[in-house]
């Protein structure tokens, strides 16, 4: 271990880590919102809407992220040019949405129907039921799967380095190429990845406590 090299490359790695964190968290947020929307559409009474949502999920779960990223970055439609970061964020979000939609859908289906009826019977409006009954119950139910998926997304975000987003992976690689010291560059980057994924897992434990996930179980 050469501490001097570590001190020298660390600022670059940290900068990359921030980009990784930023693009992953944004993709998780956008993917969750879009995924929620897709999940609701998949449960629609309208056949066409249901089909379109299912088709979206099918495509984005079945095609490599890398391919989506390259497509969006190099061949955006209507003559738009996207920055590498924007293209990376879009690609990750589109992909995340497909997975989040499936996770959220299982959550929507898992809510006992009677609990929704009880809320309707008491006169709660659809919004109140969504915010106060459905979403908290969905979170309770899907949290472990949701966080695992988010951890996976953060790791897979390394693929945006291929379309030149200066993330942790790209910076670690370029530092490695110029130093040829794997432990001081890639090794440290691995530790940074681990730190970020651990943060997400800690969030899971915290939320489980906060939501009293085990309450109501004998």
């Amino acid at each position: 271990m050469n501490l001097e090299t570590i001190a020298q490359v660390f600022p670059f790695l940290l900068k990359g880590a921030l980009v990784t964190f930023e693009i992953s968290i944004l993709a998780i947020v956008v993917g969750t919102l879009l995924g929620f929307f897709l999940a609701v559409l998949r449960l629609s009474h309208n056949k066409l809407i249901r089909f379109l949502a299912t088709a979206y999920i099918w495509v984005f779960r079945g095609v490599p992220i890398l391919m989506v990223l390259v497509f969006i970055y190099y061949t955006p439609p209507f003559g738009i040019t996207l920055s590498a970061f924007a293209a990376g964020l879009l690609g990750l979000s589109f992909n995340a949405a497909a997975y989040k939609a499936e996770i959220i859908r299982t959550g929507l289906l898992a809510i006992p129907k009677g609990q929704i009826e009880a809320a309707e019977a008491i006169g709660m409006t659809p919004w109140q039921i969504l915010i106060r009954i459905r979403i908290p119950q969905i979170i309770r139910f899907i949290l472990p799967t949701y966080i695992s998926n988010s951890v996976a997304l953060l790791k897979e975000s390394a693929q945006v380095s291929v379309i030149t987003v200066p993330d942790l992976m790209l910076n670690a690689q370029s530092q490695f190429s110029s130093t040829y010291m794997p432990y001081e560059t890639l090794g440290v980057a691995a530790v940074l990845y681990l730190a970020m994924t651990s943060l997400l897992m800690t969030l899971q434990i915290y939320t489980e406590r906060k939501l009293n996930l085990n309450a109501g179980r004998k």
Partner: peptide, 26 residues
């Protein structure tokens, strides 16, 4: 969707007790 909002008032006047209690578990 709109009717569901408008029925809120009426439903609040009619209490309902179910076979399976349907308490909110969370």
């Amino acid at each position: 969707f709109l009717s569901k909002f408008k029925l809120s008032k009426v439903r609040s006047k009619v209490g309902m007790v179910f076979q399976h209690f349907n308490l909110w578990e969370h």
